[in-house]
Design a protein around this nucleic acid. Structure first.
Lengths: 238, 238
DNA sequence: GCGGGAACTATACGGCGTGAAGTTTCGAAA
DNA sequence: TTTCGAAACTTCACGCCGTATAGTTCCCGC
């Protein structure tokens, strides 16, 4: 079994180097922002030559795409875990937990948020379908769960919604509709709407546009959640 | 008066060159995104040397800051004009006009939106106080006017708001409070909240995160406005 | 122990922002 | 009209960057 052992060893070394490249890249990003992710800087940190990285990633964009994928997955895991951890509790508590996890992750990983949701890095062109479509749809799936939890209270607000199933991406619906077979198109719109509300505040905060207006973005976010839940008709937590 | 004429001529040439630099930079941005704003490309386009630009802008960041300032001012002018143009009409119409102008400007100038609200350009560090603080506060001032228009209907929703004047930037309040002396702190929070809601959807759309979920971001935006007005208690337009 | 492939380095090219120094241009004072 | 000086612009240089190509080293499997 030496052959197998060797292949495993080689693959293990390769996986370790790949992981180190990504880890160093994330470290550089944390220090100097997304722009600090340069192959030469990574190689310098690792005692290698920049070109050695090409053995692991075809281009710098491929590395960035992988990073985005990892970060988006981590975000999806985090908010999904916050949602699942509150299973059985009332909708207001769950939605607050979910939204709080989203904001907390973002504030803990501001550069990651920029990488995932903003202009990642000079000249970066996302691959077809965008990076991390899987994680994006997982986030949307949790979003739809949020909308599903609020729907019994909020459905009366969407009586005049014009949304059709054809207004949404088939790939998204393929994940969403089996999981929530009773929800109408308007509920998916509600999910995207909730996403937009939270994304807006968090995005403004991360990019420093709120800091010059208010000293309490946290309070703004908290009261926004209160009004969101109230406007949806979700009864407040006990 | 030759002296004056000469000085005027020199200054005119200088102003024209400065304007051309900015215009070429905006053109490059429109073609290749914010990353295409390079001193060498601008100079190439103008038949100059990159270093000649240093006679007009201290650094590339200074040029970018000026561009951000111009764009932010244009945005503030646009949404302000849409607001003023509907003076006398009912709040719902005015708010829709204002929000529509915001989204329309953004979709017409997606790269400008990225420059103003996102990561502008590789390694760019905004100057102290951020770029274009004046335009930002003008936008916020119109936002507050929006909140002011909705406040008679929405104030009952903010009875339990914990916001104090000290939660906001003094510079912002110096502009806002004289213009709307009767508004409480919660109304400014409402203004920022409205900003966040619209910014979130538009931002997701501009950065391509909505396109993979829905084919009708315009409908999403329109219905979001409907729900915003409804949740604020603003009666719909006639 | 040796062949082969994987991992890595060396070198090079073009593009970037920017600093220092030199050159041209042109209005204004003599 | 000549000359002076400042402004405008170029040239050259440096160190970054991504990346292509070719060469080198090392080590696993036969």
């Amino acid at each position: 079994m030496a052959g197998t052992g060797t292949r495993n060893r080689r693959e293990r070394l390769r996986a370790e180097t790949t992981a180190e490249i990504k880890q160093v890249a994330l470290g550089l990003m944390g220090e100097g922002g997304p722009d600090a992710i340069t192959l030469r800087a990574i190689a310098r940190e690792m005692g290698m030559t920049a070109n050695a990285i090409y053995g692991y990633f075809a281009t710098r964009d491929a590395l960035v795409t992988t990073l985005i994928d990892d970060l988006y997955t981590a975000l999806a895991d985090t908010v999904g875990a916050a949602w699942d951890a509150t299973a059985g509790e009332d909708p207001a508590t769950r939605i607050r937990a979910w939204a709080g996890a989203f904001r907390d992750w973002t504030l803990a990983n501001p550069e990651g948020f920029r990488l995932v949701y903003g202009d990642p890095v000079p000249g970066y062109q996302p691959p077809e379908g965008g990076p991390a479509p899987d994680a994006a749809q997982r986030v949307c799936l949790v979003l739809t769960a949020v909308a599903d939890a609020a729907w019994p209270h909020a459905r009366h607000l969407y009586g005049d919604s014009e949304f059709q199933w054809s207004d949404f991406d088939p790939g998204l619906l393929a994940k969403v509709r089996p999981a929530f077979p009773d929800l109408p198109p308007a509920a998916v719109a509600l999910a995207l709407s909730i996403w937009g509300r939270l994304h807006g505040l968090v995005s403004l905060e991360v990019y420093g546009h709120l800091n010059t207006q208010t000293t309490s973005p946290e309070r703004l976010f908290r009261e926004e959640l209160t009004h969101l839940l109230r406007s949806l008709g979700v009864p407040p937590a006990a």
